[in-house]
Amino acid sequence: MGLEMVTHPGIGRDLGDVVREDPADLVIIDCMLLNALDAAGREGLRHVALFHTCYGFFDGSFRRGPFGIVPRLKGLGPRRLWGQADLALVCSDRAFDPAGGRSDDHLFWAGAVHDAKTAAVRRMPPLVLVSLSTAGFPGQRAALQNILDAVAGMDIEVVVTTGPAIDPAGFHTPANATVHRYVPHSELMPSCSAVIGHGGHATTFRALAHGIPMVIMPMSAVTDQPGIGKAVAAAGVGQVVSKASSPERIRGVLGEVLSTDGYRDAAAELGARLRATHAASVAVDRLSTLIGSGG
């Protein structure tokens, strides 16, 4: 989502037109659509700001970076707009969120939404999934090749998914690895022993909900990826490496994550807790309560 979309006045106008034609009891707006949040306030609409990753990221590096500074210059300060919403709904795990310790009735953590039903059942040789975002970031192809070079000769099976941004052709692929543009992660994770990811919220929590330890390789310093990597390391469920890491560095870290009981045990414990929380239902219940209470 670019700066133009975040601040474009047309989104706010469209919101006003829609609710005038079809009135709503409550409007749910992505927290990054600042012009829509502003329009909802000006129209007097009851509305919720929806946070699709950790609140600590949005109120931290997001707000202090270009996505916060430029809108503030246009009168669209993120904190003001989030604060005027009837509720700030965070679809992430509170214990994982750097802001999770805040005591604020306006903030509500529903939990991370995922589709994991059971813990991963690891097989031999271990299966490792590699996914560094469906969006293209500078250095992403080189990072994938370094990972492929790192796993060559290891007694593991590796599946790499590149997404639409990276052509899967042209990689130097070792015998124990395959590279695909797309394979449903929901088909792979139930038998994974580790995931190498970029720190995207959805992939990270899908893996953790399966109880899978991770190696996080952030692709962008201006997203939530570095923060999620730090949280993964702090929780003891994985390690973080730079996207410029050498194959030797990647191989060493992956080997440690695969062979260390502590990572597996911590990931299994976290996964059980995440699977026990039905975040989508929790969110719906909170929204229903908000509608029913009139505030």
Rank of each mutant, 00 (worst) to 15 (best):
L127M: 14
A279D: 09
A267D: 06
T173V: 15
A279K: 10
P164M: 05
G292A: 12
A169R: 14
K74I: 01
L132F: 11
I250L: 15
V240A: 03
V130L: 11
A24K: 13
R141S: 11
T223L: 11
G101H: 14
K230A: 15
R94Y: 05
G200R: 02
V232C: 12
W82K: 02
S281G: 12
T162N: 12
S191Q: 13
F96C: 08
M124I: 06
T203M: 14
K74Y: 11
K243I: 01
G41E: 07
R123V: 15
A267K: 10
P9W: 04
Y55T: 02
R141K: 14
C91T: 12
E248N: 10
S133E: 02
S103Y: 02
N176R: 04
D104E: 14
M154G: 07
A279M: 06
V159P: 03
T7S: 10
A120N: 03
P138K: 10
H180C: 00
M214C: 13
S246P: 02
V19C: 04
A221P: 05
Y55P: 01
S220H: 10
P218C: 09
Y182G: 00
H172N: 15
R249G: 01
I291F: 03
H172F: 09
T204D: 01
A267T: 09
R122G: 06
T173C: 14
G163C: 10
G163F: 08
A268Y: 10
A272L: 12
T178L: 02
D104N: 15
G111K: 11
L33D: 08
I69F: 04
E21F: 00
V90D: 03
D261M: 02
V195T: 12
M124L: 14
L34W: 07
A119T: 05
P247V: 06
P213S: 09
P226T: 00
C54W: 01
A202V: 11
G227T: 07
A120W: 03
E43M: 15
V237E: 07
G83T: 07
G153C: 04
E187L: 14
L26G: 03
M124T: 15
V90S: 08
G10R: 14
V130R: 02
V48T: 06
V222N: 09
M1R: 07
I69T: 14
L274C: 08
D149A: 15
P226Q: 00
G199A: 12
P184F: 07
G60S: 06
E256R: 15
D59E: 13
A272N: 09
G252I: 02
L107E: 03
D38C: 05
G139S: 12
Q225K: 05
G295M: 09
A142G: 15
A272Y: 03
L34Q: 08
A244M: 05
H278G: 01
D155K: 13
A175G: 02
A95Q: 13
V241P: 00
I28V: 15
G211M: 05
E43L: 15
H201N: 14
H278P: 00
T223F: 06
E187R: 13
T289R: 14
R123M: 07
T260S: 15
